[in-house]
Design a protein around this nucleic acid. Structure first.
Length: 263
DNA sequence: CGGCAGAGGCCCAGTTGTAC
DNA sequence: GTACAACTGGGCCTCTGCCG
């Protein structure tokens, strides 16, 4: 545990940071109509300045979305996904089907039901393990504070203060959690339809006003799914074998369900 | 070489949402 | 209605290239 910071630093050094545009600000100065994933022809590769740049994976997956005119924070994603998985585990342990939040399941949608059943079965299989993992007080100090006041868990210096790299690496370092996490992502993306996913994640892929989306929108969400399942783990430095398993289970090609299952 | 500045991460407090 | 969980915005901190 005490070596993790060192290992992370080593990992980051291997990632050569790149900034492609002459104007530093332009990388993030997207407007809704001007998002262009292609590098300008006359761009100049510049050395990065300042702190370690965001990973290429993260930029590709997150910067094309927006929430309040800004790209969603990585912390927001981590928070939402990890807390969501824990809550979903508690739902599964109580034999309940969630009807709210990011992983809500529409009982009329067979894809969502199927994904949820796979997730819930996995939870039940390792019930004792997941019962412990799903406790809010086993998160960073921001979570479960009410339950661990005056307890050792609250004052221990080993407890992370936020959903930082160390916490996430530790959390996903458990292969059971990682495998279950992949099933959880499948629940969220069971209906791979932009309008559905916008509601779940609470950020947008475009400024479509009438629920009509561009082909790019589907690609953005597919990229996000891929990022959450595989590339985020790579960025965290989570065990390579676990990542390769996740990669193998990734869907091939784009499969979009166009039937009207939205609620 | 050291201060400056840009960029992103860490962290927390206040707010909002959810479950019971 | 209450307690607790989850979300969010933004200030502060850290890192590192730039530049005088």
């Amino acid at each position: 545990m005490e070596n993790e910071a060192f290992e992370l630093d080593e990992y980051q050094i291997d990632q050569e940071p790149q900034t492609w545009y002459e104007d530093y600000s332009s990388t993030y100065n997207y407007t809704l109509d001007s998002i262009d994933p292609h590098i300008p022809e006359n761009s100049i590769q510049k050395k990065s300045r300042g702190r370690q740049a965001k990973s290429v994976n993260e930029v590709k997956a997150l910067q094309c979305f927006f929430k309040n005119n800004k790209a969603p924070k990585k912390e927001y994603i981590r928070c939402k996904i990890i807390r969501g998985q824990k809550r979903a585990i508690r739902h599964a342990l109580n034999n309940r089907i969630p009807t709210t939040t990011i992983h809500k399941v529409n009982h009329l949608n067979p894809y969502e039901i199927q994904a949820w059943n796979s997730f819930a079965l996995d939870v039940k299989k390792y019930e004792d393990v997941f019962k412990e993992i799903s406790k809010t007080e086993n998160g960073p100090k921001t979570d479960g504070a009410a339950k661990r006041k005056n307890s050792e868990k609250f004052v221990s210096p080993e407890i992370q203060k936020s959903f930082n790299d160390l916490y996430c690496k530790d959390y996903f370092g458990d292969s059971l959690v990682l495998e279950n996490y992949k099933l959880y992502i499948d629940v969220i993306f069971a209906l791979n339809e932009p309008e559905n996913l916008i509601k779940r994640f609470d950020f947008s892929c475009c400024n479509s006003a009438n629920n009509k989306h561009f082909p790019d929108c589907y690609m953005k969400w597919e990229n996000l799914k891929q990022y959450l399942k595989v590339e985020m783990m790579e960025d965290l430095g989570v065990i390579a074998s676990c990542v390769s398993n996740a990669s193998n289970q990734e869907v091939s090609g784009f499969e979009f369900f166009t039937d009207d299952f939205t609620d």
